[in-house]
Amino acid sequence: MDKKGFEPKILAFCCNWCAYAGADLAGVSRMQYPPNIRIIRVMCSGRVEPELVVKALSLGTDGVLVLGCHIGDCHYISGNHRTVKRMAILERILGYLGIDPARVKLEWVSAAEGARFAQVVSDFTSKIKELGPIPLQELRP
């Protein structure tokens, strides 16, 4: 797999109340982070059913971030409680199927954490660059 010059496609599901506001803050504060990320705004990280993550991966996304409010801060009180449990199961299933669970990451980013958002995206992007492109052709008959 040629990893040189590889620019991954990364999808981030950001919750409306925290992570998306955090991304906004990173933007208005002119913080630098890799341009590989595409953001989808959802009302709550609890909205992100694992099937959507798998769908993104099977369409050729190299990595998926799910970003929500810190535990205790959820606008819907316990939405992210479910997210954290689901993501744990999702990561395990991916591993059993041979897809590196590191291609999927759940992080908490508050509205005030613009810098943290930039950091999370940078770290995840370099991790995915390290992993290389998603081996899609190895999944299709």
Binding site: R82, V84, M87
Partner: peptide, 21 residues
Amino acid sequence: EPLLTTLDETPMREEVMDVGV
């Protein structure tokens, strides 16, 4: 069932709770 409950009702084991803290 754990996937329908909150962490207060059915907590997750510690080591998997370290996400993004």
